[in-house]
Design a protein around this nucleic acid. Structure first.
Lengths: 143, 143
DNA sequence: GCGTAGATGATAATAGTTCTCATTTGCAAC
DNA sequence: GTTGCAAATGAGAACTATTATCATCTACGC
């Protein structure tokens, strides 16, 4: 239930191949919303799907270009992907446990747009990352 | 005029060595506000300063820890440094020419704080990067 | 001036990601 | 259902940004 929809791939002009279906299914399974290439690779291997790391990188990039996934560049070097569910949002990253929480604030959004256009820029996209401690009571979100 | 102040280094608990003075002087010269390690390395070599790349990386990290510089993680993998002049600000990065413009918006700042505390997070720092086109008239900011 | 802890620089090592290319596979035409 | 071929895959090499190693050098207090 919640099988991958090959249509997503077809619509994006991509052949529906085994690795692509597996990767899409992993994101749709919703276990982890935010995954790096390495994360995806390991999860697939753990599930028994035999896939190459190069393919994971390739497919993630294709999915990003197709709009199926969104890529984030958090601090720490590696980029992280999440399913694109249409609604833009920003992120709070816990520095203790790495937990990522999403939020959306209309005021922040509109002021960003304002700031950019005031300066003559045409906004493509933006990233707002708040790095913080969630640890009120010893980091509820386990690593 | 605008020579490096060894005091900055001493205050940070760092010996005032030739490479450190040169790197600090480069940032204070104000030619480029935002530079990657590679940028700094090349600029110094171009100026005739003989320095090792490893030293540049080390010194930039030390300066960041000492609060002399601020490090930014823009899209594209490499991190970028700028002189820490006390006033926090965010960035608009031009996707065409790489030009970086700074801005500060008190409303955005306060709403970020609000969003985070509402969710029980203690903010350490944040990064807001707007990626946009500055090209009103063929990208005024040359690469 | 001297001694030493700390700094440097050449190079090796590492992490994340992309490239190469021989082999395999999806899929459309027969 | 087979066939053909462009596109996709996977193993590993290559690449980029950065950090670690370590023998040599240097700033600076005595």
């Amino acid at each position: 239930m919640d099988k991958p929809q090959p249509d997503d791939l077809k619509d994006a002009g991509l052949k529906s191949t085994v690795p692509r279906l597996n990767i899409l299914a992993l994101f749709k399974s919703g276990q982890e919303r935010h995954m790096s290439a390495e994360d995806v690779y390991k999860q697939l291997l753990a599930k028994g799907d035999d896939v190459g790391l190069a393919t994971v990188y390739r497919v993630l990039t294709q999915f990003e270009q197709a709009g199926l996934l969104v890529r984030h560049y958090f601090e720490g070097g590696k980029s992280v992907f999440e399913l694109n569910q249409g609604k833009h949002h920003d992120h709070i990253v816990c520095l203790q446990c790495g937990h990522v929480e999403e939020f959306y604030d209309a005021d922040i959004e509109s002021r960003q747009e304002k700031v950019a256009t005031e300066r003559g820029f045409a906004v493509h996209n933006h990233s707002l990352h708040i790095y913080a401690d969630c640890n009120k009571k010893a980091c509820p979100h386990k690593h």
